[in-house]
């Protein structure tokens, strides 16, 4: 679906933001891009729809080199939700904002109306359809940004720091939306620092540092490796940090959720009891 082939990107200022990135993201995968500030996460995301083209190497989307397609053509396949959603809004109502992108991408007026209704319903924004986007709360703005993208039904959805400025309830809602989108068969890529959010989603984690991929694997493996995370200025999830202290007792420490932690502790205690009994 998406393939980075030895991609290097150097900004006009001379900063090398990506340095020899090679990675593949398959259809229907849920991926979290993690890393410290300046690791290259946003630059990576901007390569997905051709906003940035590699300085060397190539990025392929559905087998096609991004250099050969326009941003508009690639956006049909990859929808990107940027960190600052305010950069998107300029129309007087929520429904017009959703319709605008569809018209840009050449959908017929009948399809536009149908998709606007569907996207607003899916993102629970129906009651705000006549409201100004600028008057929505932070969480509602994120949902509107997602509605705008979902309306044209891209195969890949990339979100840059979706949890920034969101309260717990909004994060929960966002988490459920991401799971639902992924269940529908879409590839979802989120770039984030929010380790607790990632731990709950249990995605594949691509860990970046200084423009390179330093680790790529399941969340359970990467988010429990304290040394690796700290080298990228990321803290372990609280659950993993707590359970890691029980490693000496032989407990399973590769856990990142509360349920797994309970299971690990119960199993560990049972084993200890059994050993003592024996």
């Amino acid at each position: 679906m998406i393939r980075f082939d030895n991609v290097t990107y150097v900004y006009p200022t001379g900063v090398k933001a990506l340095n020899g990135i090679s990675v593949e993201i398959g259809r229907g995968e849920l991926v979290a891009l993690m890393g410290e500030n300046g690791a290259g996460k946003t630059t990576f995301i901007k390569h997905l729809n051709g906003l940035l083209k590699p300085t060397t190497g190539s990025v392929y989307v559905n087998g096609k080199d991004t250099r050969t397609l326009s941003v508009a053509q690639l956006s049909r396949i990859v929808g990107i939700m940027f960190q600052n959603t305010d950069d998107m809004f300029f129309l007087p109502t929520v429904e017009e904002e959703v319709a605008f992108s569809l018209r840009n991408l050449g959908f017929s007026e009948e399809v536009v109306q149908r998709r606007v209704d569907w996207a607003l319903k899916f993102m629970e924004l129906e009651k705000y359809r006549k409201r100004s986007p600028f008057l929505l709360s932070g969480g509602e703005k994120k949902r509107l940004a997602l509605a705008i993208i979902l309306a044209w039904n891209p195969q890949v959805i990339a979100m840059d720091e979706p949890t920034v400025g969101q309260d717990n309830a909004q994060k929960e809602k966002l988490k459920e939306m991401i799971k639902q989108l992924n269940l529908q068969g879409r590839s979802v890529i989120i770039s984030t620092h929010d380790v607790e959010f990632v731990a709950e989603l249990r995605p594949r984690v691509i860990l970046m540092s200084r423009g390179r991929i330093v680790a790529d694997g399941r969340a359970e493996a990467i988010l429990t490796d304290g040394e690796l995370l700290s080298s990228c200025s990321i803290l372990m999830p609280q659950v993993a940090a707590t359970v890691s202290r029980l490693a000496d007792l032989g407990f399973n420490t590769k856990v990142i959720s509360v349920e797994d932690a309970i299971r690990s502790i119960v199993d560990g205690l049972r084993r200890l009891e059994h050993t003592r009994g024996a």
């Binding site: 906003l51 941003v71 508009a72 956006s75 990107i80 600052n84 605008f100 992108s101 840009n104 991408l105």
Partner: peptide, 13 residues
């Protein structure tokens, strides 16, 4: 630059 990127990602050419 960011706004231009956000709009281009919505199909504005």
């Amino acid at each position: 630059k960011d706004i231009m990127d956000a709009q281009r990602a919505r199909g504005v050419e």
